[in-house]
Amino acid sequence: MKIAVCVKQVPDSWAEKKLNASTKLIDREGVDAVLNDLDEYAIEAALQIVEANGGAEAGHSVTLISMGPERATEALRKGLSMGADDAILISDAALAGSDALATSLILAKVIERVKPDLILCGTESTDARMSVIPSMLSERLELPQLSFAGEVNVSADQVSIKRVTDEGVDSMSAPMPVIVSVIEKINEPRYPSFKGIMAAKKKSIEVLSLADLGVSAAEVGGAGAWSLVNDFNEQAARSAGVKVVDEGAGGNALSEFLAEKRLA
């Protein structure tokens, strides 16, 4: 079984994120970039599925796929040190400014080349927070989708999940090849071991350009964008307000604050 995991490099969650005034895109230059933490759960799920089914000896493998700038190799290296076998990065100057439609187009092209049996994604990238790529891949590749998985099981050619949303918990299954996106309740991603980090240095990261995929620059990036930012403005950061220390009347003080604000 061949598993592909789509992973994204994103600005660190704790970093102060800004939009660039001229490009109107997320400023990725000045901030620390990390592997989208929700994608770590997808990598962990892939590794656990491989382990539960006989491991690499049984012919199972995990390939990471990412679209992003050259330095996204760092995020891929982290995934490789967790235990993925190899990685593909699609990187091209013309991809800058790509929106979800373009990203899904590119990822779909790569998935068609890799021909995995199982495609795993995180539920959302922590920067753009759109939560749309897995559904878009399902449409583009005409493959079944199992999303919001809080549990994944693979047996023979069937994948079954528990879908966890506000609407409830649904048990669903579909035959492979299938696209599965996982939620953060599914597992506890492993930390790369020293051995894993050393091994990852020797693993291959194939870098592909648009030309390699046969996609023209006009279809993607800022040039081909399906949506555009008109303008944006920064809001004053929330500032800390009143803070009282409870010395026996903290609850009363809270009640008075709410009364003053006409909130209760």
């Binding site: 949506s227 555009l228 930012v229």
Partner: peptide, 10 residues
């Protein structure tokens, strides 16, 4: 921390 105005172009 930021308010963005966007439009779909296609």
């Amino acid at each position: 921390s930021a308010v963005v105005h966007s439009k779909v172009s296609k």
